[in-house]
Design a binder for these strands. Structure first.
Lengths: 195, 195
DNA sequence: GTCTATATCGGGATAGAC
DNA sequence: GTCTATCCCGATATAGAC
């Protein structure tokens, strides 16, 4: 189904990003060629350069867009309550948000190496902002006396690693539903930080 | 420092694997060329093929060797005691072993995609064996009544993800020593599974 | 906006001299 | 066992026609 001549600038751009995300996640950034992406979209390789400066920009746009979405979605969550309630909200939010975006999450963890230093630093800063959201909750819990943690930064990284790990094995329609998984992980996270 | 003509079959093979591991971990399997590896070793590209059938074999040998080492090292650990003592041993062993081999651990998580189906299956089977070691401990703890887990398989994956996550941020000479990190993670893991 | 064609480069792997 | 030379292929990116 090769695309014939015509004007499609409004839909070709998003389709390029979508196919790039799919292919990068499946085969790895370095293993995917611009020709492959173009073929998946249904245009010729040269046409891609109307929408992206180069291959790395394609990746950066995906990763930055993902981090922006993540921070915006978290900012839109309810904010009140005690540390325990806030932690529960974070755990459930994190699992749901990341399971819904498995491809780009995978990219965010695997393909940072393929970024230039300035792009890398930018993504890292966004990630640190997100980590700080969780650490603030853990610190609040320390102050309230409901959590007992020797090091809130380590606990932050440990919990995020544990939660994001769901993405590596969860399969839709498998043995466990999302809700069940959410429940089980919340149980473990809660106990891990408890006083 | 290009290597001059001579016989070095006994040391060139290991050096090729060592440089391949370093380069694959740093830049990604797909992004590293055989010429780069050869240059790092100090031989010409053609000479690599005296030691490896192709590029993928180089990767497979590294990953399989790592998994064999991991299972052998765990098998050599003391085995007795209650579930809590065994879990503590596993947690400390896992963190130490993985921190000592950051490069190949990184490869084991990132580059499985670059393996053919049969090689992939082989590595996956080894990984599952290792996971089963932890799950057996968790099941024993359930039976003893010292752990309370809705799903031992999930808890296995959650704990391993949490522990392996140390590799993504730990830097030698940083704020925390290995022993401190081990201690903090053991504290969280212990509480996460506790009855 | 998309196409075909191409410039330029570097990849994996092999052949044959030494 | 290593070297040089090379085959063949596919990569990114650009130029210019339509």
């Amino acid at each position: 189904m090769a695309r014939k001549t015509g004007s499609h600038s409004d839909i070709t751009g998003p389709r390029i990003r979508a196919e790039a995300q799919r292919l990068f996640a499946r085969h790895g950034f370095a293993a995917v060629s611009m020709r492959q992406i173009a073929a998946a979209v249904g245009v010729q390789a040269g046409a891609l350069y109307l929408y992206t400066a180069d291959k790395e920009s394609l990746l950066v746009d995906l990763l930055k867009g993902h981090m922006d979405d993540l921070l915006a979605a978290w900012a839109a969550q309810p904010r009140g309550g005690g540390a325990l309630a806030r932690l529960e909200r974070f755990v459930r939010f994190h699992i749901r948000f990341h399971l819904d975006r498995a491809e780009v999450v995978f990219l965010s963890y695997m393909e940072l190496r393929n970024l230039g230093p300035e792009n890398f630093a930018q993504i890292e800063a966004l990630r640190r902002s997100y980590e700080n959201e969780l650490e603030a909750i853990l610190k609040a819990g320390q102050a309230e006396g409901v959590f007992a943690l020797p090091d809130t930064k380590l606990a932050t990284l440990a919990i995020i690693a544990m939660l994001t790990g769901v993405n590596t094995w969860f399969r839709e329609g498998g043995r466990l539903s999302r809700d069940t998984v959410e429940e089980i992980y919340w149980d473990m996270a809660r106990k891990a930080v408890a006083a």
